[in-house]
Every structure is written in C-alpha cells, then in structure tokens.
Amino acid sequence: MTTEPAPTPRRRLLRWVLAGVALVLLALAAVLVARWLRGLGPVEDFLATFPGSYPLPESAPVGFPAWLGWQHFFNVFLLVLVVRTGLQSRAEKRPTALWTSARNRRRRMSMTVWTHLSLDLLWIVNGVVYVVLLFATGQWMRIVPTSWAVFPNAVSATLQYVSLDWPTENGWVNYNSLQQLAYFATVFVAAPLAIATGYRMSALWPRDATRLSRAYPFAVAKAVHLPVMVYFVLFTIAHVTLVLATGALRNLNHMYAQSDEINWVGFAIFAASLLVIAAGWALVRPAIVDRVAGAFGEVARR
C-alpha cells in the first residue's frame, strides 16, 4: 500500500489560490443571482412587505447604555485570547509546562490548557453579567425575536446584503432581522455550546462520573467545540466588516461612545481598545502566566 506524498509548499499555495478564486467566483455568482431575483415582481412585493426588520415592542429601549459598551469590549478582549489559547492547546503535542491544583492533586493539566480555561472562566463571568443586565434593562428586546416576522425579514435582509443593495441601517433604534437572529444565536446558542463542550473536554470534568461520561461522550464535545469556535471567528469577521462598511463612525459611536452622532470619538476609543487587546496578547507569556497560575497550584516547566 503506497501513501500519497505530502504536498509541496508550491502546491499548497496553488490550492489556496484556487480556493480563493473559487470563493470570489461563487460570491460574484451569488450577487448576480440576488440582483436578478430582486428584479422579479413577486420578489419586489416580498421586499416591500418585509423590508428587513419589524417594529420592536413599545417598551424597547432606544440607544446603548455605557455598560453595554464595556461588556462588548471585555467580550472581544477575552474572546481573542480564548481563541488563541484554544488553538495553541489543540496544536500542543508535548506540554512544556504542567499545572497541578493545590486543592486536588489529581487535577493536572498543561499550562496552555490552564490559561485557556482561566480565560474561559473570565469570559463566562463577563457573559453572565451581560445576560443579567440585558434582561434587567430591557436591552434583550433588541436581540431576542419578539415576532415571527423576524424570519421573512431576515430572508429579505439577506437578499439585500447579497445583492449589495444593503438594507437601511438604524442600529441606534433597531437591528435588522438578520442581525437580530445572528446576535441571538451567538449569545444564546453558540456561547452555551462553547461552555458545555469546553467543560466536557477539560480536566474539570469529574473523572468518576461514568454514567454521565457515557451519556455525554468526549468525542461528541470535541466534534462540536471546534466548529463553534470557527463560528465565533467568522461571526466576528462579518460583524466588524459590516460595522466598518455601513457607516463606521456612527456605528463605532453607538458601541463605544453611546452616541448617535457622527464624529471620531467612538473611532478613537475603538482604536485604543485594539491597543489594549494587542497588549493583552503580548502579556500572555510564561513569565506572567506562571506567576498567576502559581497562586492556585504548582507550575512545573520541563
């Protein structure tokens, strides 16, 4: 039995180029089809009936409170580091450092995994605070569908985006239905899945829970965890792209300056937040992480 030789760097580059060309052609075809569809009478009527969003309940708040801006920043900051350490832990073959819990000596893991789990915990705490404030202030009505009209309006918004004749944006008052479904899925579906699968894969999972482990196999959690991470990455890319492409100054003011004005205040805060994220990325290094981990257990480097 012969094995196929590994592809050379030139072949790998060629594959990436061909994949990129295929994606561009596919996107172009999608735009052309969407524009053709929008020229059909029934589709025009559909777009007129469902413009892309539906009215929120009368009690829905207008604008964004300061806590939402801070929560948004903390979420992005932690998510970047969670994804980074998650990929590092998956690629790690032989750990260069191990952490042993001071409370339970049986609980042992690589320092990369410990860092990933610690960041996960902070991300979960931030998420819990976010959800509590979301429902306490009525902001939940922005991202939780309150009408079945969300589905045809989401189809309408999708068609408008793909045709490059984008739906009218007024995020200060109301998201379009596609945005609402995406935010709902991210907060109430993807995040819980990431937590549940991450916990099952971690050293925190009880080793003696035989029946529970059989009912919730490790392989299932592993098969779900990576696609969820990929979803977060793709969502972030799409989210940032649309924020910058649909009125960057106004959108950044919404989230970072709690203002509906068009000026550079939100952009300046956004730029500063990127520097903080870059600093956080640089600070996740053994000299610092080992000291933090040492307060909760024993760190041994090989």
Rank of each mutant, 00 (worst) to 15 (best):
P192L: 07
A271T: 06
P206T: 05
A191C: 10
Q179R: 09
L87I: 00
T146P: 03
E4L: 14
W99H: 05
V80N: 10
V155H: 10
F188Y: 12
P5A: 10
L14H: 05
S213G: 12
P61F: 12
W36F: 15
S202L: 14
A293C: 10
S177F: 15
P145C: 05
W281L: 12
V240K: 12
D165Y: 06
M141W: 13
G86W: 11
I143R: 03
L226G: 10
S213W: 09
A268I: 00
Y161P: 06
L40T: 08
Q71N: 14
F46G: 04
L244V: 08
L133G: 11
A282W: 13
L87R: 01
H72M: 04
L164D: 07
R94M: 11
S163P: 03
T112D: 00
F46T: 03
N104E: 14
A287D: 05
I124H: 01
V189M: 11
S89H: 03
V125S: 02
L134E: 13
A209C: 01
G294L: 15
T246H: 12
A6N: 11
L121H: 08
V292E: 02
G39H: 07
P152Q: 01
M229Q: 07
V43I: 06
M255C: 07
A209N: 01
M141G: 07
F151M: 06
R301S: 10
Q88W: 00
V43C: 05
Y161A: 13
A91C: 11
A48W: 13
V284Q: 07
F74W: 14
W205C: 15
L226D: 04
S163T: 02
T236D: 11
S273N: 12
W67Q: 15
V173G: 00
V189S: 04
V33M: 01
N251V: 15
K222D: 09
R200P: 01
A27C: 11
F267C: 00
V150R: 01
Y256M: 15
W172V: 15
V233M: 03
R301F: 07
A185M: 04
V83Q: 12
P227N: 09
T8P: 01
L18R: 11
F151C: 03
L87F: 04
P55Q: 08
L212V: 04
S101K: 13
R10Q: 13
A157L: 10
L47D: 06
P167A: 14
V289F: 03
N75H: 15
M1N: 05
T96M: 13
L23Q: 00
T49M: 09
I195Y: 03
P192C: 07
L181S: 09
S202A: 14
D45K: 08
L68V: 11
G280T: 09
A136W: 08
A48Q: 09
A194S: 00
R106E: 13
Y216M: 12
R105N: 10
